[in-house]
Simulated assay, not measured.
Amino acid sequence: MIVAGAVVQGTGHLAAGRGCQDAFKAVDLGDAAVLAVADGAGGRERSALGAHIAADTACRVLAEDAPGPADSPETWTRWTAAAGARVVAEYVRSVTAVLRATAPAHRPDPPDPSDAGTVDTGALAATLAAALVRPPWAAFVSVGDCFGTLLTREAATAAEPEPAERCHLVLPPPGPGAPEPVFLSSPGAALRARTFVVWEPDLSGVVLATDGCAALTLDHPSVRGLPPEAGPLPSERFFCGLAATLRANGGDAEPLRALLSGPGAARTGDDLTVLCALAGGR
């Protein structure tokens, strides 16, 4: 499996003198990969650190006791739902520990460590999208406005030795007029987390991205002659082209970094992060 990712500081952040607030991490499990991308809340004091904690936490949780390819849909569904709740709980525990450890020395004795409500974890607020990719399964955990795309490709045949790859937006970003995004540190985040499982025998890859990438990677439905209600569609030129490039070069992420640094991406002003796992390579 090929795993590749890149993060590029947004032009708006650069102009404002703000550091990059995105983060990503991946874990190789041999026959599977765990992916996580996180986006620190803009304007929050330490949201970049929060994004790194979120990506690290998600990868650690999703790599533990993961179901196998032969396990039942019920097993996968239960495990994914439990993993989503654990990601939120572990994130809150970690950022609470960080905030207490870095509190001013003159602060009074800290309260009971089990009482996370006494610490404002919003300073490290972040959104998250994570996935365990173990073909033919893909399990997703999401809090906030990051998004995810599934790639499929049918088996080769004599009539079609190189079948086309297709992309499917299985974890869409919020649409226009949607409420403010939920953060991992938001009250009730565990109840508002999205968790789901996809079984797809033709699964060929999973791509996760932070919300700053939407303008670069998603098409308006009118591009395919569909009404606005159809919602955003994954750009075949971006996702399928990226997969072909990474398979051809063995997973070198430099072409991906170049895409995220190009003129088409610069107009968003936001940080951009893309991370993918592709079957059929090493």
Score class of each variant (00 low, 15 high):
L184T: 11
P110R: 13
L208C: 08
A156M: 06
P136K: 04
V119Q: 03
R257W: 07
F239A: 02
P263H: 08
G12M: 08
V206P: 09
V223D: 08
G188P: 00
A178L: 05
R60L: 14
T157C: 11
A244Y: 07
L216C: 01
F196R: 01
A155I: 01
L29C: 06
D109F: 09
A81I: 04
A158H: 12
A32M: 00
R247I: 07
A82E: 15
G262T: 07
R237N: 10
V27S: 11
R192L: 11
A70T: 08
A258H: 14
P113L: 00
D219L: 13
R134F: 02
P69R: 08
P221C: 07
T195H: 06
A116Q: 11
A36N: 00
A66D: 11
P179C: 12
C276A: 13
A244C: 08
G42K: 03
G264F: 06
A243Q: 02
A159M: 09
M1T: 12
A139R: 03
P172R: 01
V207T: 13
G68S: 05
T57S: 08
A164D: 13
L171H: 02
P104K: 11
A126S: 12
F24S: 09
E74Q: 04
A105D: 10
A58Y: 08
D109T: 14
E254V: 12
T102A: 12
T195M: 10
T77C: 01
E254Y: 10
G68L: 09
R192M: 09
A279K: 12
V61H: 05
P111C: 13
T152E: 09
S72Y: 01
L218I: 07
A116C: 02
P179L: 05
L49H: 12
T57Q: 10
D56S: 15
V37C: 00
R18H: 14
T268S: 15
H52E: 15
G144K: 05
T80W: 09
L169Q: 03
